[in-house]
Nucleic acid binder design. Sequence first.
DNA 1: ACAGTGACAACAT
DNA 2: TATGTTGCCACTG
Length: 122
Amino acid sequence: MNFYEQVYAVILQIPRGKVSSYGRIASMLGRPRAARAVGFALNALKDKQDDPLHAKLPWQRVVNSKGRISIVNREYGRNEQAERLRAEGVVVNNKLQIDLDIYLWEGLHWMEIDDILKVQKE
DNA sequence: ACAGTGACAACAT
DNA sequence: TATGTTGCCACTG
């Protein structure tokens, strides 16, 4: 199981209506400085439109450390991410910013991470 | 083996 | 606020 798959496994745990950040996800996986790699993992996903994971993964729930949408316009853009979030009740203001005091997901502890990665392995 | 590439983050202007 | 700089790191060819 490579790092990307671990990233996807964590993102699948983010509850509807909550968000997390690239850096926090990296930290959960024991790599507090691998934020860029997390972004890269999501970027790689856009090349796999056919992969069922692409449809299943709530990629819209990952924003930057300031609570702002980082994605630039590509296949889908900032607006699509904002719309997807609003559709699940997250307030995104006109600056594409989200109030982390309200919507930030607490995340998982290392023991829970351990379980998730174990399940994925099977 | 190695250099290039980002949907980052923290800090300095 | 808004840019710019620097450090980062997994993956790729």
